[in-house]
């Protein structure tokens, strides 16, 4: 103890040396989010004749920990648009509140919310781009599903960099590697959209979810699936992957305790 109260409770200079102020910088570049914390994995989407179907599992992981198991990653906007979120869950909540406030504002007009999925996708991609340009990205990769201005089925993706991409079937995250090849096999490029039925699209997504559950260690077998048609949105948020067979797992070798 000495007579300098500002030094009380602090490491003694004569023992530890003077504090190195370079550790506590008050100037210099500001650091924003440089990695996501609680994350959702793949989002899958397929267009069919007259609509779009979107699916995600219900998991939010904290690193490799399966932290939250009842997370709704498909968010409804207005009367016929859905956003499927992959990536950071808190950023998803922020975007969800943002979209909610837009929906409320649109409903001030007595025409109601006239924004379609295409408008929504354009807006979201610009929000992402603005934030990445500020070096403060919203750490998400989203699929937007619904209808465009002409009333045609719409499916497009936007990511944390503001990159946009459109295709008749899309997947984010691990699904971009594992689900897209399956979807391309089921619905080849030369196949017109008119020949893709709603049932075939739903079935394809269920197959992809199963493969993803087998091979993506950040996935789970409880999932949500939303079907958008002209009649409206049919969303189921508590589905379970059926007909699993883990027989193949016996033959998987080369890691863990079983090295040969």
């Amino acid at each position: 103890m000495n007579h300098f109260p500002e030094a009380w409770g602090r490491p003694r200079d004569d023992v530890y040396g003077a504090y190195d102020h370079s550790y506590l910088q008050t100037t210099g570049p500001k650091a924003h989010t440089s990695s996501p914390a609680v994350t959702g994995t793949s989002v899958l989407g397929v267009k069919f004749n007259g609509g779009v179907v979107l699916a995600t599992d219900n998991l939010a992981s904290y690193g490799s920990l399966a932290r939250f198991t009842d997370v709704k990653r498909l968010r409804v906007f207005g009367s016929n648009a859905i956003v499927g979120f992959g990536g950071d869950v808190s950023d998803m909540q922020y975007i969800d509140r943002l979209l909610e406030s837009i929906d409320i504002r649109e409903n001030y007009s007595h025409h109601g919310n006239m924004l379609n999925a295409k408008n929504l996708h354009t807006y979201l991609s610009k929000v992402f781009y603005k934030r990445r340009s500020e070096f403060n990205p919203l750490w998400n990769h989203v699929l937007v599903a619904g209808y465009d201005g002409e009333g045609e089925p719409f499916l497009s993706s936007a990511d944390l960099l503001g990159t946009t991409f459109s295709a008749p079937h899309l997947a984010t995250g691990f699904g971009a590697h594992l689900a897209v090849p399956i979807l391309r096999r089921l619905f080849p490029e030369e196949m017109p959209l008119e020949e893709v039925s709603k049932e075939a699209a739903i079935d394809a997504l269920k197959q992809c979810l199963k493969v993803l559950y087998y091979r993506d260690a950040r996935s789970m077998d409880k999932y949500s699936i939303a079907v958008i048609t002209k009649e409206g949105i049919d969303i189921k948020e508590n589905e379970v992957i059926e007909g699993q067979s883990w027989a193949f797992a016996e033959r998987v070798k080369g890691y863990g305790a079983q090295t040969k």
């Binding site: 939010a60 939250f68 709704k72 909540q93 509140r97």
Partner: peptide, 8 residues
Amino acid sequence: VDGQVGSG
């Protein structure tokens, strides 16, 4: 709650 993702 606005932005709520699960029910716990």
